[in-house]
Amino acid sequence: MAMIRFTVNGEPRSLETEPDRPLLEVLREDLGLTGTKYGCGEGQCRACTVLLEGRPIVSCLTPVQAAAGKKILTIEALAAGGPLHRVQQAFVDEGAMQCGYCTPGMVLRAAALLDQFPKPTEVQILAALDGSLCRCCGYPRILAAVRRAAGMTTEAAYAAR
């Protein structure tokens, strides 16, 4: 057992736990932040995406001790009670969800992309989201949502491919 201190969604947290527990399980089970989803446990679907120091990571493969002393942002805090983040709003407007289980991970990946590149190219969008799985296969609507959030028209996106 170890005492782990980190900042989650702007709040300092400390908890005593096994240092090799997946960050995903600590978030969901100890902190009640169930917006972060378990999908595969091998970093292959990215449903468990959270932002660690602003960068997207797969929390299923991240031992909690690797997050010690760092800032974590989960889907619950992206809008934080205020208006939706532009990526979230675009997902709502474009109907970019069927079952919606992959949505939090997708939204965080896209939000991190727009933080890094406010005007991403189509190629950058595809690269940022390619590893995120959606088994409803709602990819066309997800792409449309990210393009909308990036202020890109669908015509421009197709022209770039």
């Binding site: 969901r28 989803k37 889907i75 809008a79 709502v92 969800m97 919606g100 289980y101 939090p104």
Partner: peptide, 28 residues
Amino acid sequence: GKWRTDARDIVTGAHKYPSDVAREGMLY
């Protein structure tokens, strides 16, 4: 055309899927 009526809960992570349900004193 209408999208999911609960889209806001989905994009904010607020929707509780079966795997998200928690009860007092619950074990895993």
